[in-house]
Design a binder for these strands. Structure first.
Length: 257
DNA sequence: ATGGCATCTAACAGATGA
């Protein structure tokens, strides 16, 4: 069972760069998307259906902004759009799909590039932790995939000293992420398999940052402790070039004891 | 300290992103 998280930075732009062909070749069971930046009627969903995929979207009110989706081979038993708080749900940042044996969240944590948005980002984060803690009592087997806009540790960013005062690597944000994993009982699946530096999921478009691997690891597949023993591997897919982010894959053996 | 690049909308300039 393959699950991928991918911030596509505009799904229509991604389509123009052979996103559907990429999906057809990789064929994940579940694809969690962020920054679709489109209303549903602006997305050529027929191409997904032609590949046998179901798809669900939670879009922002503002046109061309944010938006998350879940594309899946299996039809979800239930889809939950948003988290129930209008300030967050207006921005299309959370969608959940419940399957027979597990649930999946696709999450796009707000950016605070504009530092005026830091309070909003942290409020979202705190709310998300409470939401997930509650959720796990009903759905213990949970995978949270998304763009958290936080690089967790020093090995997750190319210049931890210079960037320690920049949102995305602030002590406050990093501490929240540690608390989130701890209190929600989730595992960072990529780091479960790989403790080496230099593995990032986002690079600036500027200054040839991707070619020089001056990046940040912002995109995660977090796996509940109940599913941890089923994980087989987790890798980033840097050959996918539809976005300033790259996809991150986590694979499970559903039959593992 | 600034800008650099890309994808959006609504317009051929401005917002957003990290």
């Amino acid at each position: 069972m393959k699950i991928i998280t991918y911030n596509v930075n505009g799904i229509r732009a991604a389509y123009n760069k052979n996103f559907v062909e990429w999906l057809s070749a990789v064929r994940p069971d579940v694809l969690c998307l962020q920054e679709s930046k489109a209303a549903i009627e602006q997305i050529d969903t027929a191409k997904l259906e032609d590949l046998g995929y179901h798809h669900h979207w939670h879009c922002a009110q503002k046109k061309g902004y944010s938006g998350v989706g879940i594309v899946s081979k299996q039809k979800p038993k239930h889809v939950e759009y948003g988290c129930g708080l209008a300030d967050f749900d207006n921005e299309g940042r959370i969608i959940r799909a419940d399957f027979d044996d597990f649930s999946v969240l696709s999450v796009y944590v707000p950016s605070a590039t504009n530092i005026d948005r830091l309070d909003f980002k942290m409020q979202f984060c705190h709310y998300l932790l409470d939401y997930v803690k509650d959720l796990r009592t009903e759905f213990p087997n949970l995978i949270i995939s998304g763009d958290f806009n936080i690089a967790h540790n020093e090995i997750d960013i190319h210049d931890p000293v210079r960037l320690s005062k920049v949102s995305g690597f602030l002590p406050m944000e990093r501490e929240w992420l540690s608390k989130f994993l701890d209190e929600a009982g989730m595992v960072d699946s990529f780091r479960h398999f790989n403790n080496q530096p230099g593995h990032y999921s986002w690079w600036s478009y500027r200054a040839a940052a991707r070619e020089r691997n001056k990046g940040w690891r912002l995109d995660y597949n977090f796996v509940s402790d109940t599913l941890q023993h089923k994980m087989i591997r987790s890798v980033k897919l840097p050959d996918a070039r539809h976005s300033d982010h790259c996809p991150v894959l986590t694979e499970f053996d559903p039959g593992a004891k």
